[in-house]
Design a protein around this nucleic acid. Structure first.
Lengths: 212, 212
DNA sequence: CTTGCACTTTACCGACCGGTCAACTAGTAT
DNA sequence: ATACTAGTTGACCGGTCGGTAAAGTGCAAG
């Protein structure tokens, strides 16, 4: 009857593999983590992995889907919609990202940066499948950003002619860059120090008097 | 007598290895390129590599030093000091980066993003030596940014109380993020589209009236 | 001519990579 | 009881990884 709970012998292995892949790949990188290590960490033999997934790439793809879903539910939505007012939301979001990174660092010893950006950088030039999947997740993040910006336009916090599409894309780029720097420093404080720059991107350009 | 030209049988191999390592690692990634491939591309046998370098990591370190020197001379300095006026310099710099990335894409088929940021992301969590070397190069870039911003303060283009240290760091983060996005898109146009955000970071904050 | 040295060459190492396979186990339905 | 099947297991594959070692090459100084 119930479809989600019954695991006679069941899909424990599948979920364990996804969890292990997430912890290991997010904590290090795609190519630094092998199939054998993922299986060992999940307490599963290698053959079982290939029963549930065609291979390492497919496992990673599924892991990224689940990771994005969790990230959206636990960080993106609470961080971006919990507070009232644009600047309060920015502040809350930055702190949510900071907490996310710091917690992973606390339990794995490594500050990972953005898992999606990391994979995009690592595999972007030689694995189109992975690259495009990640591009999709990043687009979803951008959509959340734009939604927050559109709300702010609606509430009069931003001028009505604001190009929220462009601003959301700039936010994503800056956020990715902040996480690259935080990872390079291995220091979550970098996120708090650079986070306010998200707000600075919203400031109006005083004039545009250089060459026409 | 002359120390730089004479290569009886000489250091051709060493320079060839550095060049091959640069082209291959920048075009793909550290772990995606093997010693064997670097040697083959340089037309050198594997043993010779280990005569000049203790190993892959040391070769990569030396390659990054040379790469940064070239980048500073060919992109950073001309891009940041060629024009007059802050906004013209930003524009010139963005175009210089765009040209740099587009040219690599033209000859290797791949838009690489920032070679330093890429390595920092790939190795940041499990190779402290590489990570700190890269951190040094990125600091050098930040110093160039701050110099440009200090010039602008001197010329009255920015308010005298401007925190050029913080702004330079934000510029670097945004630039890294822009290059992550460009790499994810594999499209140099992303650089031109997002580049103007560097200028937006300079705009004055109208007021600061949220919670004290 | 001989020695020494910088450099090259080749063969080789153990470890690990992602992936395959056939045999096996256990729960389910008939 | 039997047959089916989802899931598991462990042995195994060829290939590649970074790195090593020893022999060989050619040049230059003594």
């Amino acid at each position: 009857m119930d479809t989600t709970i019954s695991n006679p012998t069941g899909h424990d292995s599948r979920e364990g593999l996804l969890k292990a892949a997430r912890e290991l790949i997010v904590g290090r990188s795609y190519s630094a983590v092998g199939i054998a290590e993922i299986c060992a960490h999940a307490g599963v033999r290698k053959g079982s992995l290939y029963h549930f997934f065609p291979g390492k790439e497919a496992l990673t793809l599924a892991m990224l889907d689940a990771l994005y879903a969790d990230f959206e539910r636990e960080v993106l939505i609470p961080g971006l919609t919990g507070a009232n007012g644009l600047h309060a939301r920015i502040k809350a979001f930055v702190h949510a990202i900071h907490a996310f990174e710091a917690s992973i660092q606390a339990e794995s010893g490594q500050l990972p940066g953005c898992p999606f950006g990391n994979l995009a950088v690592e595999m972007g030039t030689h694995n189109p499948t992975l690259r495009q999947a990640i591009r999709g997740h990043l687009d979803a993040v951008t959509a959340h950003f734009r939604s927050v910006l559109d709300d702010a336009v609606q509430d009069g916090e931003l001028p009505p002619h604001t190009d929220t599409d462009a601003l959301a894309e700039q936010w994503l780029a800056l956020m990715e860059g902040i996480l690259v720097m935080a990872k390079t420093d291995q220091d979550p404080a970098t996120i708090l120090r650079l986070g306010p720059a998200l707000g600075a991107l919203l400031n109006p350009t005083p004039e545009a008097r250089h060459e026409p």
